[in-house]
């Protein structure tokens, strides 16, 4: 997919582990892995909201469009 979710980049910037993030936003590590690996077909606005809240960032910091 052309939309890339840069969670890894934000996680390293905030020095936070994946497990910590999943616990903070209340999703399972398996679902977070789906997001990180780009397998996700859709992202709920509520999840994006929680991600931005936990990582202190804007949606644009997490989402990126790449021309295939």
């Amino acid at each position: 997919m052309a939309i890339v979710i840069n969670i890894d980049v934000m996680l390293s910037k905030r020095k936070m582990s994946s497990l910590e993030l999943s616990q903070k936003i209340g999703i399972t590590p398996a679902n977070l892995s789906i997001l990180k690996t780009g397998k996700a077909k859709a992202l709920k606005l509520s999840t994006l909201d929680k991600l931005c809240q936990a990582l202190h960032c804007q949606p644009a910091d997490l989402l990126e469009y790449r021309d295939d």
Binding site: I27, N31, L32, I34, K39, A40, K41, K44, T47
Partner: peptide
Amino acid sequence: KSENDLTV
């Protein structure tokens, strides 16, 4: 179902 499973 597969789309639903891959919606986070």
